[in-house]
Design a protein around this nucleic acid. Structure first.
Lengths: 342, 342
DNA sequence: CGATAGTGTGGGAGCGCTCCCACATGTGAT
DNA sequence: ATCACATGTGGGAGCGCTCCCACACTATCG
């Protein structure tokens, strides 16, 4: 590796051209992989690049080419709290992996305050990124619409509703929930309850739908007393579990829409003297670290989150490359990870 | 907020100048906060900027000014696995918070493969960032030295050794460990063991030092049989705990150098029928989510990680702004969070 | 053999800034 | 009045690229 060199600055395209004995245009074409270059010229340029240790100046490229070679990964306000969850790091790792072979830069943008959102809107209008990855959106989030309006290539992780128009990559929440509940039913449980997430979140409704489909598919009657609303927090899981035991003391299985809530439910079940899984079987969602650390370890539905991140990046790059606006909706399948709680 | 506008592109500095009835130079001076501008001109320019919704073109600035207004947060290979740990997300949140009021961009760089490291070295020589934050370095990591050689402003989280020359922000690992072990001793425990991290990591050695200081400070003999090497993984914690029980069945307290390892140790203790904290008191390090979810919940040493992130960003910005190379070493104090395991 | 179409190539223009020189104007000392 | 110096200002030059036009040179055809 060549570090530093003659002169004050790094070599420029022009210097490469001089060394290779060609014009600026030809060097540019080689760098950008244009097919309209003779093998001979290409070889000479590549040699010159290697000799000089030339690396293109990003800013100059961006200025001349009216692009930035950078994409933003945006983590909205509500999520910065949950940032520690494996969800985001796995997304980031997936995105990073996919981008590693590109020379696309990844900008991390945390949007906590309205002021920061405002500032980010400026970023966008100032065309400081070529595209945006939006990690986890709420139903009423206007950001995707702003992005669409600005014709900024965008990919969401998850979606706001069935009608989501912006490109997204989501996991099969309905199917995951369905398979979890089917598993409980297959164990012979007949009073299968669910603890839902906040129902103003699409993901929570999907998981509830999956629960319903499985229950009804087994020819059982859907009983609203078996559905308790949680909010994806541990305390919410505890409250929901208490309510369920109150309403239906005969409950023999619970599907919680997140591991955190399942953890809360587990505490209450133990308090109330119910054995897991003997008296009550329990399944969570996310297959997070918590699932491995509860006693007993939680059976849980795993989402392929890193894969989601990779896919998001891939879809975004395609969207940036495409001349016409395309929308892609990708749903990745989930997998039931069996442990001792069910 | 003005979105879009007349013409094809966003307004330029020149247009702002025309509108304000001044020259390009004056607008530039206003934007960059130069004191050499009359109040009158300044007001006119600011009005024009607001009316046009002008946002400076970053690429043009970078090209003309020979800087990037971007810093890289680098997460080296070994750590991408641990990325889910609150450590990194807290660092990121802190950095993000500190940068929010700046117009410095945060680039996330995961360095997994040697190839990616190589590529990153090119980034650096190509001057694509103004500074680098390096999250968690290993003792033999050459990256800090490369950065120093390139005169790239750099701040580490943690340090490689006592002699670290590059700027860093670290937490008081020695003091944290010491207080944890002192707490165990204060409980009347006399056979206090420790599960260390990998001893080629400075942070692991610091925590071991703290352990030693506390033990010796209490007038006890240091027994090597009470020291088991782990590797910051759960499995490592399990193995170390098994070794400890084998060597010193009389062990009545354990200080693990991370919560993850403490979690592993806890499993083994339960397997072997030891009650926590009755038979064996246990303390972890990091105060991570795991600590709250084990049974019993772990007493643990908390580091002010988000604060570390904030400080890192602050120090880096100062270093970038400073004309001369400065080195700053900041050590933040830790706190023992008491739960039921000790 | 000229016309027509491809290929490869050089280099001008220009992207939107910052830097800095030159100059205008103002102020106080001589 | 003259000089010295600070203060404010306009605009040329140039950062390192990409885009694209113009041109040279080939092939292919009737």
């Amino acid at each position: 590796m060549v570090i530093g060199g003659r002169r004050s600055g790094r070599p420029t395209l022009e210097e490469v051209a001089a060394r290779a004995g060609v014009g600026r245009g030809t060097v540019s074409r080689v760098i950008n992989g244009s097919p309209r270059v003779s093998d001979h010229a290409k070889a000479a340029v590549e040699a010159a690049i290697a000799e000089l240790g030339y690396v293109p100046n990003r800013a100059a490229r961006a200025l001349a080419g009216n692009r930035t070679d950078a994409i933003a990964l945006v983590i909205p306000e509500a999520e910065t709290r949950l940032f520690a969850e494996p969800y985001f790091s796995d997304i980031i790792r997936g995105v990073g992996a996919e981008l590693a072979d590109t020379d696309m830069q990844l900008l991390l943008t945390l949007l906590r305050t309205p002021k920061e959102r405002q500032r980010f809107a400026q970023y966008l209008t100032a065309h400081r990124v070529d595209g945006v990855l939006l990690a986890s959106v709420h139903e009423d989030d206007p950001l995707p619409d702003l992005l669409e309006q600005l014709e900024m290539p965008t990919v969401l992780s998850g979606r706001r509703s069935d009608l989501e128009s912006v490109s997204y990559v989501d996991s099969d929440n309905v199917g995951g929930a369905r398979s979890a509940v089917a598993h409980l039913l297959g164990l012979g449980r007949r009073s299968v309850a669910t603890i839902t997430g906040p129902l103003d979140m699409y993901v929570a409704r999907c998981r509830l739908d999956g629960y319903r489909q499985a229950v009804e598919g087994a020819g059982l009657l859907h009983d609203n007393a078996l559905v308790a609303a949680g909010d994806f927090t541990e305390e919410g899981g505890r409250a929901a579990m208490r309510a369920l035991l109150e309403r239906r003391p005969d409950v023999d299985a619970v599907f919680a829409a997140s591991d955190v809530m399942a953890g809360g439910a587990l505490q209450v079940l133990r308090e109330k003297g119910r054995r897991v899984p003997d008296d009550v079987a329990l399944i969570g969602f996310d297959d997070s670290a918590i699932a491995r650390h509860t006693d007993p370890p939680l059976t849980s539905v795993r989402q392929p989150i890193e894969e989601m991140g990779r896919t998001m990046a891939r879809v975004l790059l395609e969207e940036i490359a495409a001349s016409t606006a395309t929308r892609r909706h990708v749903v990745l399948s989930t997998e039931l990870v069996r442990r001792e709680s069910a």
